[in-house]
């Protein structure tokens, strides 16, 4: 069997998801054994233009991005969104909820007009995405499982259930039940991270996007019960999920 050719691409992001792939250790060598990586900026200066599977990191945030990602889609048989920036536009979309001229000025200063910057979008706003590996950053184990499934021609498994499932499996004390409770997005956020943040006492901020049928009304009731104002609620959602359907 010929090895599938794989390419990694980055748009607006920190490239932390590609660094996560790079830090796979021994498994990285296994990955290179089973696929032919032709494009991976964080690892190699070689730029192959012939690929079947494209892992795409980052959000669309310039008009040039739109042309570039369409080109990638034309060449790739399978496009995989890598991480929350590509999946749900993630933290990049925070700017969408501010005045665009002011945002540009704040970032680029007086010459802001010279820069091409549009509202941040997840990649599926522009191209058809076949699979998603959520998270900020992605989870190593999940990346390996998904990459192996795709190489094997099998639909990869991504949990549809909430972070609470994995949090409870670990026997964690719920962050809502601690002596100093904090609000957590676990009940409405897609699992797969092993409840990474609540396991160390932090709140889930929803980096993996919401579950397929989040009960936002019930969730807002919980936020209200914990004294979260309407403004704070939106800030909380917009950390990662400002563009997710149903959030308003």
């Amino acid at each position: 069997m010929e090895k599938p050719k794989v390419a990694f691409f980055e748009f607006t992001c920190c490239e932390g998801c590609q660094l996560t792939v790079l830090s796979l250790g021994d498994k990285l060598l296994d990955l290179f054994e089973s696929v032919d990586v032709v494009n991976f900026r964080e690892a190699s200066s070689y730029r192959g233009q012939d690929y079947e599977i494209a892992f795409i990191e980052g959000s669309i945030s310039t008009s040039k991005d739109i042309d570039r990602i369409r080109e990638i889609r034309k060449k790739a048989k399978i496009c995989v969104a890598l991480g929350s920036c590509a999946h749900i536009a993630g933290v990049n979309a925070i700017k969408n909820f501010h005045n665009q001229l002011e945002v540009k000025k704040r970032v680029y200063g007086e010459k802001a007009w010279a820069f091409d910057s549009i509202l941040a979008q997840p990649i599926d706003a522009v191209i058809k995405v076949d699979y998603v590996i959520p998270g900020c950053p992605i989870d190593k184990k999940e990346f390996l499982c998904v990459a192996a499934s795709i190489s094997n021609g099998v639909r990869p498994f991504i949990p549809e259930y909430s972070v609470c499932v994995e949090c409870k499996m670990k026997g964690n004390v719920c962050v809502y039940h601690k002596p100093n409770p904090i609000v957590c997005m676990g009940p409405i956020t897609r699992a797969g991270c092993g409840a990474a943040c609540p396991s160390v006492g932090n709140a889930c901020e929803g980096c993996r996007g919401l579950v397929s049928d989040p009960n936002l009304e019930a969730y807002e009731g919980v936020l209200e019960e914990h004294g979260i104002s309407a403004d704070d609620k939106m800030r909380f959602y917009r950390m990662y999920n400002g563009l997710v359907g149903g959030v308003k």
């Binding site: 499932v165 409405i188 009960n215």
Partner: peptide
């Protein structure tokens, strides 16, 4: 049900819930 998250916390903490899902995982060396 209108107030339920479907988060499954009740299932996970229960001493008598015994349902399980079965899934395959291929290693990256295939």
């Amino acid at each position: 049900g209108a107030k339920c998250f479907g988060c499954g916390s009740c299932n996970m903490v229960c001493p008598t819930c015994y349902c399980f899902d079965v899934r395959d995982c291929v290693e990256i060396n295939l």
